[in-house]
């Protein structure tokens, strides 16, 4: 490698980094600008994923449907704004909001401390636990932790023992999660040194690989699993161990907006409140999940 060649290469690299740095610096300066006074946009640009049944998915006619979609359309009609909903890749859905590609996200997104540092959330519009799922012939089904639910806000000694036992049982197994989810973060932080983590772009692909036996077990939201477990391929799989909520799993699902856009946030919360009060939210949850997942 010649000295001259390398010097030129280094100079090119420096130029690219500088360009990236400039692009970034300005972005931060702009977001603070009078966001609180910004009026509610009309039409409201809404992002969802479109691959996370039963929250949001695409039907063969190409329409976005699901619990999220019903909730959002009702919220918009109560806010008296037009809604334009588009499907976005899950990975980039928060950066896309920050970049101003759309105004709100409703995509089965859990309210977590990590995300609260970069976006604001409405009140929760659904709360459901996370579950592990494995094929029925997996030895993991013999695992009995004696608990139905582990709340991770405060962990007592039995729960601690249960998590340790779970970690033991999962040692060396491959665990599938969707990239950029609370489930991915939990597996990374709590089990990362014991299991091999497989990250998927969508829940649907995760389910596909679980069914084909490529991974030993998957972790995802219980209601997201239901759609799979009800399908032909999912009949040979089932829940393993207790459900998880609280702590890293957050405070339920919320609608996300850019930080500081308080007028929009208030309007969304008001609409959700009225839907909760007149039972609309409960009815929608029962329709999509078979139980009232909207309860807090």
């Amino acid at each position: 490698m010649t000295a001259k060649g390398f010097g030129r290469f280094a100079a090119m690299l420096a130029a690219v980094m500088l360009l990236a740095a400039c692009g970034e610096g300005d972005k931060q300066a702009q977001t603070a600008q009078s966001a609180a006074d910004k009026p509610v946009p009309n039409p409201l640009r809404v992002a969802t994923e479109g691959a996370y049944p039963p929250y949001n998915m695409v039907d063969p006619a190409g329409n976005l449907i699901g619990y999220d979609m019903d909730v959002m359309r009702e919220v918009c009609s109560r806010m008296k704004v037009e809604c334009g909903i588009t499907a976005q890749a899950w990975d980039g859905i928060i950066p896309g909001l920050q970049a101003g590609k759309y105004d709100v996200i409703i995509a089965g997104m859990s309210i977590t401390d990590e995300r609260k540092q970069v976006v604001d959330f409405t009140q929760g519009y659904a709360i459901t636990p996370a579950y592990f799922v494995a094929l029925n012939d997996s030895p993991l089904h013999q695992l009995d932790l004696g608990l139905e639910r582990i709340g991770l806000d405060e962990i007592d000694t039995t729960e601690e023992a249960a998590i340790a036992a779970l970690k033991d049982a999962l040692k060396g197994k491959s665990v599938g999660v969707q990239n950029a989810t609370i489930h991915a973060n939990f597996v990374e932080d709590a089990l990362g040194d014991a299991v091999s983590i497989r990250r998927y772009d969508t829940q649907e692909n995760l389910a596909l690989d679980l069914a084909s036996g490529r991974i030993d077990v998957g972790l995802a939201d219980s209601t997201a699993w239901e759609a799979f477990l009800d399908s032909e391929a999912g009949r040979k799989a089932g829940f393993v161990g207790p459900g998880f909520d609280g702590g890293p799993f957050g405070e339920g699902l919320g609608i996300a907006v850019r930080k500081g856009e308080d007028r929009l946030l208030d309007a969304l919360n008001a609409a959700l409140n009225s839907m909760r009060e007149d039972g609309t939210l409960k009815r929608m949850a029962e329709q999509w999940f078979g139980f009232d997942a909207s309860a807090r």
Binding site: D91, I94, Q98, N179, A180, A184, R199
Partner: peptide, 8 residues
């Protein structure tokens, strides 16, 4: 991608 998704 994983870093981008986790750290924003």
């Amino acid at each position: 991608r994983a870093i981008a998704a986790r750290t924003f």
